[in-house]
């Protein structure tokens, strides 16, 4: 092992502290007994218990979950089918460039532009149907739109790495289309699909901007609730809620890492 220059170590530690100090502060104050201000008054789990009696927060948590689960399921299916459509057919170079461009759009443009475009589009759609009132449906549509691209990119890279020969070998060994899909293509593609789905799920939980622009009064999610609460002033309950969300993120990240490294 080569030695690391002490200055490098100091800077790295500083950066880590910079990333984690605020998050740790939130966690620490989430178990502080004081209701107002930031003076340490002893350990308590009261704020966490209160969360579970707060109808508004429980409702926001439910909305967040519904939004993430529904959008992930739809986008994983659409993204996977799209990836197969892009990779497994003899498209000309120009078609491929076009498809690639459309696919990269939600990845590269700032999310606030997508959000603005959706607000305007839903606004116009409302003239046709009241279905598009700001609310959960609009949020789900918005989330799916950026998730599809990420799922398709992940699944496509898996398809590319699978290559052509393994399917040719299956055909050479008399596999019908159904048998090939069931026994070879889908099992080999599954890690990519799961990774894409996990990415979509995390992206949905992580999103604030799209939700903020498309949400209605009945469809407040946890990030929206926290944002609104912060503008009113921080409370220990919000600390507790943020800490919980943080913990869930940690579990998701570690789980995804484990999964992707096992493959």
């Amino acid at each position: 092992m080569r030695r690391t220059h002490p200055l490098v170590t100091i800077l790295a530690m500083f950066t880590m502290a910079f990333l984690y100090l605020p998050l740790m502060a939130v966690a620490v104050f989430s178990v502080n007994a004081t209701k107002y201000g930031l003076v340490w008054r002893g350990f308590t789990l009261d704020w966490y218990l209160k969360l579970f009696h707060n109808e508004v927060i429980l409702n926001a948590a439910w909305n967040t979950l519904v939004l993430a689960v529904v959008s992930t399921i739809v986008s994983t299916i659409l993204g996977t089918v799209l990836a197969i459509g892009m990779d497994r057919f003899p498209w000309s170079k120009r078609v491929n460039t076009f498809l690639d461009m459309v696919l990269h759009l939600p990845v590269v443009i700032p999310d606030i532009i997508l959000a603005a475009a959706l607000v305007v589009a839903f606004g116009l759609l409302r003239m046709v149907s009241s279905m598009f009132e700001p609310g959960l449906l609009n949020m789900i549509i918005g989330h799916i739109t950026f998730q599809i691209a990420f799922v398709a990119l992940v699944v496509r890279s898996r398809l590319v790495s699978l290559g052509q020969e393994i399917e040719e070998a299956a055909r050479d060994l008399f596999a019908s289309t159904g048998y090939l899909l069931r026994r070879v293509t889908l099992p080999l593609l599954l890690p990519g699909i799961v990774a894409g789905g996990m990415l979509a799920f995390t992206l949905s939980l992580d999103d604030f901007v799209i939700s903020f622009f498309t949400a209605g009064p009945e469809s407040v999610t946890l990030p929206l609730y926290i944002f609104a609460a912060v503008r009113r002033g921080v409370t220990p309950q919000i600390h507790a809620l943020s800490t919980l969300v943080l913990l869930i993120t940690v579990i998701l990240v570690v789980g995804t890492e484990r999964f992707s490294r096992r493959r």
Partner: peptide
Amino acid sequence: NTVFQSYALF
């Protein structure tokens, strides 16, 4: 039947 260069085992 074919033996592929990369073997293409499943």
